[in-house]
Design a protein around this nucleic acid. Structure first.
Lengths: 388, 388
DNA sequence: GTTATTTAGTTCGGTAACAGAACGAATTAA
DNA sequence: TTAATTCGTTCTGTTACCGAACTAAATAAC
C-alpha cells in the first residue's frame, strides 16, 4: 500500500501497475483498508479513454504523530497527521532542571499543542524525540548529552511512554535533521547525504546508501573531534574536540580576539565583516577553510553526493560562499554544498519522517526490502503554520 | 536454506527449529535440493533421546568461484568451492600492458589454476575481481586506477565475462579486504568495521550496519585525501593527497631524509629503528601519530567498532604498538585497532565472500532482509594451500 | 525384556497471498 | 452506432507455507 501513501488520489488499476500486483489483489487490499478506516474514496478519474476509475486516498487524520526537537536551550514540538500536515507547533525554553522535568515538559507541550487544534489524545499514535547525544536503545538513556542534565541517569524512553501512553522513539537530533533534508529538503532523492550543524558546537548527520549512519556506539557524526583545526594531542582537544574548538563560535570569537584584542559575539563579528573589517573577514575566511576541510574529511570517508549546512553559523551565506571557494582548493573532486532551506525545522521534519515511516510500516505491514523509510513524496506534503 | 549453508552436517528438524519453518516445509525443500544435486546425506545423529535424524550438508564441489585480487604490481587468483575451500591459487606480476592484456591474463590464470586441480571449466560459476579504484557498474569500466593502464577505457566486466563464459563481479580491492576481515578475519561478527591498507599508498574500506560503504561515486575510503598531514591547499596535495604524502612510504622516506640527509627505503628505516636509531624512531613515531589521527577521523564520521590495519606498512608491529599509544592521546574514546592476520589474502577472501553470497542467493532464491552477505561461518571454512 | 518418553519424519488437509483468464461496465474515438 | 480502451469483478488456479495427526526410531525407566 505504499502506492497509496506515495501519491495523492490514486486508482486501484494505477496501484496495480505501479506495484506489479494483480488488479484483484489490489481490489481486495483496498477494500480491507477502507473497512478499517485508513483509506477513503475521493472521486473518479475523467478525461481519458476507457472506463473511469474510482480514486482513493489515505485518511489523513486517522492518526497523528508528535514530533519533538529537544535542544539544550529550546524544545520544539509539532503534531502532524499521516500526510505530514502540521496541525500544531510550539517552541519553549528547555526546562533547566533536566531529567524528569524535561520529560514532563515534552509531554505537556505536545498535549497542549494537540488541544489547540481539538485533536484528541487517543488519535496520537507515536512520538519521535530528537535529542542531542546518543540515545541508547537498550536502556532508554540518552548518553553524551552534557547540555541537558539527568538524561543519562534515567530511562527517558520509558518515562516518555508512560507520560504519553503510546510508543516513543528516540534519535539523535542531527541524524533527524539529515533525514528531514533527505525527505523534504535539498537532500531529496539522495542516498548518500551529509548534514553539518555548525553553531555553538558542531555535529554531523550522515546517510549512506539511503540508511542513517549511527555507528557502533551511536557516536557517528561527532565532528568536533576531527583531528585538525587545533592540536588533537592537547588535553583541551580531548575534552571538547580539536575541530570544534577552532570552527565553532568559541573558536571564531577567539581568533577575532587574538587579532584585535576585542571580545565580540559571533553576530557582531559577521556585522563587522559585512562592513569590510579586515580582521573579521580573515576570521570568516579561516572558519570557512576549516569547514571546507571538515567537509573534505567526511567526503574522504563516506563520499556523500551532497553536504547540507545548518546551525546558526552554518546557515550564514557568508560561510557558504567562502566554503564554495575554498573546498575546490583542498579537495580533488566536486562536492555539492548547500545551506539548508528547512533551517531550524529540519529535525522536526526528520522526526515526522521517522514517525510516519514507522507508523506506515506497522499499520500496513509493509515489508520494505531494506531499512529505508518509506514516506509520502514531498509534493503531497504541506507544512502549515498555526498561530500559537 | 541458509541453515544448511550456515552449518556443517545438519538435520531437517534442526533446520526447522533454526528457521521457524515447519518440518514438512523443510523436508520438501531439502528433497528438492538433493534431487538437484546441491545437498547430500552425510549420516545420522546419535547419542540422544528420540529418533535419530538424517543429516545433510552442502555438496562442496557443486560449483566453484574464481576470486581475483588485481593490484598494480601483482595479480592473485584463487579457485574456491562452495565452502570456500581453496583448491588452487596463483600469483603473478600484473601484465604491464594493461587493458585487454590484463583481462586475458586474469582469465588464463584462473583456468590454469583450475586445471592443476582437474576442475572442469563448466564447474566454475562466477568470478569476483577486486581491483584498485572505482568499478563503474553501468559501464563496466574501472575508474581512478592510475596504476594499471587501460581499465578506464574498456568495459572490463564485459571483456572478463566474454573470456570466462560466466558472470563476473567487480569491486574495489580494499572494500574486498574489509569484507574478508569481516568474514574470516578479526572483524567477524562486527557490523561497523574499518580497514586501512597502508603501504605505497593508503586506502580504506568501511562497513556500516553490516553493509559496505561505497559512496555516491564509489569514492568512499580514499583516505589519502584526508585534509591533514600536509597542507591540503597545496597543489601537490590536490594531486596525490595531503595525508598520503605524509603517512605512506614516500612520506616516511622523505621525513627520514630530511632528518638525516640519507635516502633509504622503508624496510631499511624500520631496521634502523629496531637498532635504536633516534631519527628512524622519530619517523616511526610521526607515522603512527598521523595514522592515529587518520583512524580518529574515520571514527568521528562513522564510529567503527574496530579498525584493522593491512598493507606492507600497516602490518608492521612497530606501527601498531605506536598507534595504540598515540590514539588515546588524540581521541576521546577507545577504538579497537588490530593488525590483520589475513594479511595479503584479505581481498581474495573478501572476493570469495561476495562470490559465495551471490551464488548462494541465486541458487537458493534466498531473500535476505537486507543486503548483508550470508556466508558459511568461519569454523566450517578451511583455507588449504595447494602446491603450485 | 517391556513400557514410557522423546525426537524425527511423513501424510493429509488447509490457509494466505497472490495470479491468469474471462467477461461485464463505462468511457472516448471514429 | 460500433470499435477501442481501460476499470473492476468473478472464477479458478498456483505456490509456499502450516496444524494436526500419526508412524518411526532412539534412550530412559522400571
Amino acid at each position: 500500500m505504499e502506492a497509496i501513501v506515495q501519491g495523492g488520489p490514486v486508482s486501484r488499476a494505477s496501484i496495480s501497475k505501479q506495484t506489479g500486483l494483480s488488479k484483484q489483489t489490489i481490489s481486495e487490499i483496498v477494500r480491507q483498508l477502507e473497512i478499517d478506516g485508513w483509506v477513503r474514496e475521493t472521486g473518479r478519474t475523467s478525461g481519458h479513454i476507457g472506463r473511469t476509475a474510482v480514486t482513493y486516498e489515505l485518511v489523513p487524520d486517522a492518526a497523528y504523530i508528535a514530533a519533538v526537537d529537544l535542544g539544550g536551550t529550546k524544545v520544539r514540538v509539532a503534531i502532524v497527521d499521516l500526510t505530514c500536515q502540521v496541525f500544531a507547533e510550539d517552541v519553549a525554553p528547555t526546562d533547566p532542571r533536566g531529567g524528569p522535568a524535561v520529560v514532563d515538559q515534552i509531554v505537556s507541550m505536545c498535549f497542549a499543542a494537540a488541544k489547540t487544534q481539538n485533536i484528541a489524545r487517543d488519535r496520537i499514535r507515536l512520538a519521535v524525540i530528537g535529542a542531542p547525544g546518543a540515545p541508547d536503545d537498550r536502556t532508554g538513556r540518552i548518553l553524551l548529552a552534557p547540555n541537558i542534565a539527568g538524561l543519562d541517569t534515567m530511562n527517558v524512553a520509558a518515562a516518555l511512554e508512560k507520560g504519553f501512553g503510546f510508543d516513543v522513539m528516540l534519535e539523535n537530533d542531527v541524524n533527524l535533521a539529515v533525514l528531514g533534508e533527505n525527505w523534504l529538503g535539498q537532500g531529496q532523492g539522495i542516498d548518500n547525504l551529509a548534514y553539518i550543524a555548525l553553531g555553538t558546537g558542531i555535529g554531523g548527520g550522515l546517510m549512506v546508501g539511503g540508511n542513517l549512519v549511527r555507528g557502533a556506539s551511536h557516536a557517528a557524526g561527532e565532528l568536533g573531534f576531527l583531528p585538525f583545526g587545533s592540536d588533537p594531542f592537547e588535553p583541551e582537544s580531548l575534552r571538547s574536540g580539536a575541530f570544534e574548538r577552532a570552527v565553532a563560535s568559541g573558536g571564531i570569537i577567539e581568533r577575532f580576539r587574538a587579532a584585535t584584542g576585542k571580545t565580540l559575539g559571533v553576530p557582531a563579528i559577521f556585522d563587522l565583516a559585512s562592513e569590510g573589517d579586515a580582521s573579521a573577514l580573515t576570521v570568516l575566511d579561516d572558519t570557512a577553510r576549516l569547514l571546507a576541510r571538515g567537509i573534505g574529511a567526511i567526503a574522504v570517508v563516506a563520499n556523500p553526493q551532497k553536504v547540507i549546512l545548518g546551525g546558526s553559523i552554518g546557515l550564514r551565506p557568508e560561510i557558504l560562499e567562502r566554503v564554495k571557494t575554498f573546498l575546490p582548493q583542498c579537495f580533488p573532486y566536486a562536492i555539492d554544498v548547500e545551506a539548508s532551506q528547512l533551517g531550524a525545522r529540519a529535525a522536526i521534519i526528520g522526526a515526522a519522517a521517522i514517525g510516519l515511516g514507522h507508523l506506515h510500516n506497522t499499520l500496513f505491514g509493509a515489508d520494505t526490502p531494506d531499512s529505508r523509510i518509506s514516506l509520502p513524496p514531498a509534493n503531497t506534503v504541506t507544512l502549515r503554520e498555526v498561530a500559537r
